[in-house]
């Protein structure tokens, strides 16, 4: 991209000179890189250059993803409060035993780590409500956006834009909406004669809002995927159904839903994977409170590890269990993907 100085009407030499001076360091660096990497190529031979190209990325992967994956086992089977592996005594399955030791299996309060069970229960509750709500709403939005309507681009952006907001910002927007004094939700309730509710102090309400906010923030993303799926359904099928006298509702059940099934399954697994890992939205919105009402698994891991007394081993044990759940979900996703590409 060259700027033509003459077009701006300024002395061209000046522009050219300024441009040259400004680009001098960049050009210098480029030439230097050419020189260094060129001589490297001469040393290792150009057949080995691909290894050089993948090196930086792979180095980071191996050090910060693969290595930690293995180290996680080391942490899970050792105890103590030190993060250094050499100072950690081997405890075998001690961490798991401690996590799962309960006086009475039906009463969580008799468990040694009752917060762990609360976290698992909350996560389960969260996922079981959030996933269906997310899919149904995303489906409705996608169906509406797939219709022959005006302002489609505007509506699509309206549903989508919260996806790009940071979880912290989303949580703060809703925390402000939920204020007891001057909060918009309580004001709207006030119009219907309902006395202000102190949401923050009520565990059930905060769980509801945690799910609501999570759906609000992400539904546009899934709606977009489903919309792409809907647009992939050949219009001929609808025309044929219409000729056969199928009503709009029949067309939905007999044409849209069966053909959208692969996309819906992918969305289902994706929402499950994300739901099980939910952390930041809820962490900022509720902080896990009131009490332990909205502590989710990942927050439990974070708190157990990074807050005193820093029980790294137990946190890593929970991580492994979470990883096992995610692995099962991921395998399902891969199988679905394969079936989808085979059938396509």
């Amino acid at each position: 991209m060259k700027i033509k100085p003459d077009a701006v009407g300024a002395p061209p030499d000046l522009f050219r000179a300024i441009g040259r001076i400004l680009s001098l360091p960049l050009v210098g660096i480029l030439h230097l890189l050419d020189l260094i990497i060129g001589s490297l190529e001469r040393v290792i031979g150009h057949r080995r250059m691909p290894y050089f190209f993948v090196l930086p990325n792979m180095l980071i992967f191996v050090i910060f993803v693969m290595l930690p994956l293995l180290l996680n086992f080391l942490f899970a089977f050792t105890g103590g409060s030190s993060i250094l592996p050499e100072n950690r005594p081997w405890v075998g399955t001690g961490n798991f035993e401690r996590l799962l030791s309960c006086g009475n299996i039906w009463d969580v309060s008799t468990c040694r780590e009752d917060v762990f069970f609360f976290a698992v229960r909350n996560t389960f509750l969260f996922v079981i409500v959030e996933v269906p709500a997310m899919i149904v709403l995303a489906m409705l939005i996608a169906l509406a956006l797939n219709r022959d309507i005006r302002l489609r681009g505007f509506f699509r952006s309206a549903f989508f834009f919260p996806v790009l907001l940071s979880p912290v910002v989303v949580a703060l927007i809703w925390k402000w909406m939920l204020q007891t004094r001057g909060g918009l939700i309580n004001t709207v309730l006030g119009f219907f004669g309902i006395a202000p509710i102190a949401f923050v102090l009520d565990g059930n309400w905060m769980m509801f809002w945690a799910i609501f906010v999570s759906v609000w923030a992400q539904v546009g993303f899934y709606a977009l995927i489903l919309l792409a799926g809907l647009q992939g359904i050949p219009p001929v099928l609808y025309e044929a159904a219409e000729i056969d006298g199928a009503t709009e509702i029949q067309r939905f059940w007999k044409v849209t839903l069966p053909l959208l099934r692969p996309t819906l399954l992918v969305v289902l697994v994706l929402t499950l994977i994300r739901g099980v890992q939910m952390f930041d939205h809820v962490y900022v919105l509720t902080g896990g409170g009131p009490g332990t009402a909205t502590v989710l698994t990942v927050q439990y891991i974070y708190r157990t590890a990074f807050e005193p007394p820093n029980n790294w081993g137990m946190a890593a044990s929970v991580s492994l269990m979470l990883a096992a759940v995610l692995a099962v979900l991921t395998v399902i996703q891969l199988l679905l993907n394969r079936r989808q590409t085979e059938s396509a």
């Binding site: 990325n57 992967f61 930690p68 996680n72 942490f75 993060i83 890992q277 990942v298």
Partner: peptide, 20 residues
């Protein structure tokens, strides 16, 4: 290997990541 890194979320490895 790169594709499989896609499947490993930070939430699962945050303790060893902190050590590294």
């Amino acid at each position: 290997l790169i594709l499989s890194a896609l499947m490993v979320p930070l939430s699962v490895i945050m303790i060893p990541v902190f050590l590294v």
